[in-house]
Design a protein around this nucleic acid. Sequence first.
RNA 1: GGGGUGGUAGUUCAGUUUGGCUAGAACGUCGGCUUGUCACGCCGAAGGUCGCGGGUUCGAGCCCCGUCCAUCCCGCCA
Length: 588
Amino acid sequence: MRHTHSCGELTVQHTTLTVDLIGWVHAKRDHGGLLFIDLRDRTGLIQLVIAPQKFPDLVNLHPESVIEVMGTVMLRSTETVNNHLQTGQIEVSVEQAIIHNASDVLPFSLDESRAENVSEETRLTYRYLDLRRPSNYQRLLRRHKIAAAVRNYLNDNGFLEVELPILFKTTPEGAREFLVPSRVNPQQFYALAQSPQQYKQMLMVAGLERYYSIARCFRDEDLRADRQPEFTQIDLEMSFIEAEDIYNLIEGMLRHVWKNVLQKDLALPLKRMRFREAMDRFGSDKPDTRFVLEIQDVTDIFAHSAFKVFADVVATGGVIKAINGKGLTDLTQGELKALEDSAKAMGAKGLAFIRVEESGWKSPISKFFNEEEKVALAKALSMEVGDVVFFAAEKWERACTILGRIRMDCANLLQRRGRLSIDGDRFDLLWIVDFPLLTYDDEIGHYVATHHPFTAPVPEDIGLLDSDPHTVRGQHYDLVMNGVELGGGSIRIHNCDLQRKIFHEILKIPREVVEDRFGYMLRAFRFGAPPHGGIALGLDRLAAMLSATTSIRDVIAFPKTQRGQDLMCQSPSPASQKQLRELHITFK
RNA sequence: GGGGUGGUAGUUCAGUUUGGCUAGAACGUCGGCUUGUCACGCCGAAGGUCGCGGGUUCGAGCCCCGUCCAUCCCGCCA
């Protein structure tokens, strides 16, 4: 390498030294008889002092040009020291300069305060420029450190890193897949792996005992702020273990990451919460427990109410849930409307409410309540003047999720009013456990796997598979942080007969489909399959949250837009007729 | 597949409510000046397919219909 130092590493100790630096022109200040250039590389900035008459070419350079300079490190005079700059006590007096690449005028400013506001569309089109911003570099650096800490920890705990195939086969259940036509097998397709799930289970049968990979996964579903068509999982699987072993391992791994990346101690063990409790109290299977605002069940109060709407719901097996938006009686009409829209988006018909004001309750429904009901309700929800209470009267799960959404909306409103503050570096981690193994799907008329069909039932519930399938608990666990699902895993089925029963009798997958898609797996389970289980954590989400950003696009080098396009290289793009012919693809 | 928000100069936005003069501002760019700045400063100039297509109108950035793109959410994500 030709340069002697990085820009950011220079200090007063280098004074009088002759150095060779190379980097980008971060900023240029032309004073006519004197020229300043801030030279930048990934380590930081250093001010160059230049006599413009000696280097006329430097005067007309655009920012982001790449130059190399040789010069002497000088101590700045006290009145010219810049305390905002790491290297602000020194500067380099330039004696020689080479322009390696004069930049065109930039399509947008890379100045942090301005670039933040530039549309993502523009920034993604010129992603290689956007990534030059120090904040973006820091995010990729942090992601790298997380991955490195994870690898170190797992390596030290007896894990083998194994790369598993990305070209897999289509599976009947699960997410929509990307199909890849096979040239040498006409009319046959691979599917890009949604996850290494089945391969890693085969590794356990193969006797590896402990496997991990930082695995790329592909799902052809619609995108969100925290969803990309390709994403990365910290994927691992272990043999001869129980759920407790996974909790211990992952908690240790997280502590290692927190220590190495954030220089913080993570308090262990992590809390655990049953699925049922998470739904009842927070209206979500990924509860944000950083603030209270809990949901209350008021079904009993209104079981025999004169208010027909509530009584009817209870009579048909539904529940009445309520949440107290503490101190939000100053809701504007617009905010109330927005809450109503939220509720409707979650499947509610409307959003009943009570405003608790000095003059009494203001509500479209409270006139139907009798005194006894009002007293009980006020007590159950600790209603005080200034509060607003919202209701959901629905089937249990829907009532929970509606108010779960309202809870998050209320928290946002309270934050905007400055009445609720959530510490930016607070991380509430917890395990969600005791999920139901199966969920009944009304549309198709039978049960589907709540997570995936390989999840083992809790042993003492296996007998209920035939009689009460909905009560069977799965040995599944989700890891949740600040209301975001960081990952999930389970103890797997390793018994051929049980796996077959789940496929055939419970999930009603036709016999020939099972044979075609999972036949190899069932066969493997007849040759000494060890008890095993594992987990997958979303690296993108983890990196995003540890970088204090809500969009995983911020921690992915080259993310795709909501329509799955890469704006920089313009993919996807049409294929040539020749390629299509070779792949045996014809369009009508 | 559905709903919300947005698209005006290179960038970020105002202008759309109530259709009406040559569509503005800041930053950037270009030219000039400037030896201690670090968001340098001062003077001047250029820069527009108002996303695209159609319609209404004497007249459309603004109203109507369609469409494309971005983004957020619902569905979906075993």
